[in-house]
Structures are given as C-alpha cells and as structure tokens.
C-alpha cells in the first residue's frame, strides 16, 4: 500500500519543553491507526504540527505525495487532511444544520445540500436535531457532529484527538463503528486514544509516543505485551 503520510525528523520545542523530539512516522493509505501515550507525551502537539498550527523547528511532512511542511492550516485541509479536536470544535450558537452547511457547502459536487445533510444526520444519529443549537447537544452528540463536519471537507486523512473522551461505553462503541464506516469509504484514520477497548475495536496498528518520541509501534497484541509500554503507563495514573 502506498504511503499517504510521511513524517521525517519532526522536532518542536517550547522553551525547554520538547514536544516533538525527532519524530519519524509513516502511515499507509487506507489504514486505521492509533496513537497512544501518557498525558503530556506530545500527541496533541503532533497533530498540531501535522495541521500547521505549530511550525516545526526541524523536519518535513509529506502528505499524499507533496511536501506540506510550509503550508498554512487551511491549505493543508484543502489538500485532504481533516481533524476532530480533543475539545469539541463546533459552532455552538448555530443550529446543527448550519454547522453541517459550513462544512459541506463547498464540497457538494452537484449533490443537493438537503440530501447531504439528511445523510449526515442519519450517520451521526442526529435525526430530528437539525434545528437544535449545537451547543445544547449532549457531549457525545457534539463529538459526532464534529466528526461529521470533519468528513464534510472530503478528507483523505482524518485525525481524531481523543474522539471518545467523556462518552459512555455504548457511545464509544458506536463511534468505533462510525470510524469503520468512514474507513470503508476510503478515509485513512489516525486517532489518539486512551481507551484500549476502543483501540482494539478500530486499530490495526498502534504507535506509542513518549516524551515527544516514537517509543514503539506494532499490532495491538504486541503493544499490550510490550514490557516497556507497561512501564510507561504504570508511571501514570490516568489510564
């Protein structure tokens, strides 16, 4: 399979805090991949580097065959990267429909907006909430709405930062099914996740990040049995 994302020697420090310490990482097109690591490991920062919200001190990012290291965020989105943030990034005062409209309006390819919105409402289980202000949806629904918005821009690669944070086990499972469905439509998925059951549900391979570096990478079974990984997590109480 061809590589959709290739990161080489990515490095970023804020004063003394090194959030990316020479990261080499690659992802093949069509993969479902999870990124794990203790709090403060640099997972969110890695996403921000991929999205162009931080400029790296060194290293290159190649996406879909082109060097995107110098591109602004919105240009990277237009190339086909999309994101669902750790904290839901939706338009809270606007209706669910308006949220979806902003995401989809430039990507309809002649399809009707109404049909597209109906389809996404069904996908996110938000039927009947079309006119609801997004800010009063439940936390889980807000996460789903943001996933739907992220899909609107026709991504080739979808980044998800802790998509199931604050969700019930049922909601978490349903989120996993949504991601499988998106993957089946050809979207490569890279998710930061703490919940190992969820990781097992969605990921083929897992990368462990620690102190801004790749600690190891492998299948779920390999990662769970890895003594070093257990050690990293034993030192933290949040998993």
């Amino acid at each position: 399979m061809s590589e959709i994302l290739k990161v080489e020697g990515l490095r970023k420090a804020f004063g003394g805090v090194v959030v990316a310490n020479g990261i080499d990482f690659s992802l093949s097109a069509g993969a479902m991949h999870c990124l794990i690591g203790p709090n403060g490991a640099g997972k969110s920062s890695f996403f921000r580097l991929l999205l162009g919200e931080h400029a790296p001190d060194a290293g290159t990012i190649t996406f879909d065959g082109g060097d995107i290291t110098g591109l602004r965020s919105f240009q990277r989105i237009r190339r086909g990267i999309s994101v669902k943030f750790q904290v839901p990034g939706i338009f809270k005062a606007l209706s669910v429909r308006q949220n979806l409209e902003v995401a989809f309006q430039d990507h309809l390819h002649g399809h009707s907006l109404d049909a597209t919105i109906r389809e996404m409402l069904e996908f996110t289980d938000l039927q009947g909430e079309e006119m609801t202000p997004a800010g009063i949806l439940s936390h889980g629904q807000q996460q789903w709405l943001e996933i739907a918005m992220a899909v609107g821009v026709e991504p080739k690669l979808l980044l998800l930062d802790e998509p199931t944070a604050g969700m019930s086990p049922d909601e978490t499972h349903k989120t996993g099914e949504m991601l499988h469905e998106l993957n089946a439509r050809g979207i490569t998925i890279l998710a930061v996740e703490h919940d190992m059951a969820f990781v097992e549900q969605i990921a083929e391979r897992v990368t462990v990040l620690h102190f801004g570096s790749i600690f190891t990478e492998g299948t779920i079974a390999e990662i769970i049995d890895h003594p070093g990984v257990q050690e990293i997590y034993l030192g933290t109480s949040d998993v």
């Binding site: 919105f74 989105i77 994101v83 990034g89 338009f91 308006q98 902003v102 918005m149």
Partner: peptide
Amino acid sequence: RFGNVLVAIRENPHRVGMLGYDV
C-alpha cells in the same frame, strides 16, 4: 455561503480555518 462562513467565524474562527477556509 459567504454569510454562512462569516457567522461561523464569529462563533469559532479556529474551526472555520480547520474546514479549509482562509479565515
């Protein structure tokens, strides 16, 4: 569509940029 983007920018400019718009 222009107006849709304007009110979205008022609500959350960061998200609008992350939908591919040049805010």
